[in-house]
Design a protein around this nucleic acid. Structure first.
Lengths: 228, 228
DNA sequence: CATAAACCTTTAATAATCGCTCGACAAATA
DNA sequence: TATTTGTCGAGCGATTATTAAAGGTTTATG
């Protein structure tokens, strides 16, 4: 019996993601993957050119989609404020990571290792990510919308906050009974990040007495612009 | 020739930490450890009861020191403000992690896996850590020193910010040319975290006009209390 | 100082498991 | 029918962690 080629490939990939996520790449055997996928062991080498090829294909798949999301927001954002751009970005990336939660988790973990693959991925994708984020932050600073502050730390913290719930889901569920998988998570966490933008990233109105004076009546419309 | 027992054990532990950190636990073989430590292969099983025992001993060692640092600040802090307590904690934990940077990195990575060991460690150490942190945050809120906000997110973000530079040092050095190993790192990063406390955690003075009015002349002494 | 006990280290070997490939077979394609 | 493509079982060669047995060294005891 000969199933569809694409179908078995997907079955292998799904099984691999699940196992890599909970056990790590090195901690997972091709036999486990084949068994979980319900296919023959040799098909992994046939379709992906071996265990290592499977890993690279999965990681690349994740980062391609990840960077694409950033580029889309970067180029086609219709928000007038930079903070608005960022909020669109936050929403897009949270949804993307949540949809690919196990994949994201194991990719992020794997990226903490030392290997030539990791270094290649960093110079390919993460340098690009850094460029987009820092350009956006700088834009916000130039417009006096953001407070001037160390841009490296700012970028790193933003990325880290975006990554946190998907790198440590077991920690969140075991210690805090928070599940990043559910739909109910994204909303409050997004709100939390918006609050961080307001308090830490944006220019505080206190430093500009004039703006502070007119702030109250304008409050509604400004909020509208930024989205809820 | 027979070396000192403790000496051999330390050599093995150091080699293991180095290799686990860059290659991961599963990615490291006992032969590599023995070769790097310059000792016989069987000594690892002899001294640590096998590779797994070595892992558990190292992780436990790290968390024991980690929790002790928290407890010390928690019980013996001489700061009058809760924010002052936290700043002492930040400094103590940053130094501890920096002194054990490779160990911290591989422990944090290993904690993102699914295993009974990880779950045990979480319920043993991370639940305790959560208790201390949340109690401190609640104290700050009761004293109106901290703004009322979701305490789970607050605690998680604090822990995450404390962990960030030590879980992703390769990312920081490859993409940002930041090295968490150097002494020059702690100071600006600590400052960054203090700023986060001021902006995001603490009650803003704007909400209390009276305090705001007397703030300027008192500025010096308050700053003194909190430490630089 | 001599001897026994405890401790540390090495050699050699074991069983288990690893990723991967080969040849046969079946199904689709031409 | 001939060829390509997908699937499978069997098994290869290499490597894994671990251990048992024995040798060497230190320490305690008389």
């Amino acid at each position: 019996m000969k199933a569809d080629k694409a179908e078995t490939k997907i079955k292998i990939a799904e099984a691999a993601i699940s196992l890599f996520t909970s056990q790590g790449f090195k901690g997972t055997t091709v036999r486990q993957i084949a068994k979980k996928a319900g296919v023959n062991l040799a098909l992994i080498s046939y379709h992906f050119g071996g265990k290592k090829g499977l890993l690279e294909e999965l990681i690349t798949l994740f980062f391609e989609g990840y960077i694409r999301r950033i580029e889309i927001v970067y180029h086609t954002s219709n928000s007038s404020s930079v903070k608005g751009n960022f909020i669109e970005l936050v929403e897009s990336l949270l949804i993307y990571q949540q949809k690919n939660l196990p994949l994201a988790r194991f990719v992020y973990r794997e990226m903490t290792l030392d290997s030539t693959l990791v270094r290649e991925l960093m110079s390919t994708y993460l340098v690009k990510e850094k460029y987009f984020l820092q350009t956006m932050f700088e834009k916000g600073m130039k417009k006096k919308e953001f407070r001037r502050q160390p841009i490296d730390f700012l970028t790193i913290q933003f990325k880290d906050m975006m990554m946190l719930p998907f790198l440590h889901p077991l920690y969140l569920s075991e210690v805090y009974q928070i599940t990043a998988e559910t739909e109910t998570f994204i909303k409050p966490y997004k709100k939390w990040m918006v609050n961080w933008f307001d308090k830490c990233v944006c220019q505080t109105e206190r430093k500009n007495p004039l703006l502070s004076a007119v702030q109250a009546p304008l409050f509604g419309s400004i909020q509208e612009k930024w989205g809820s």
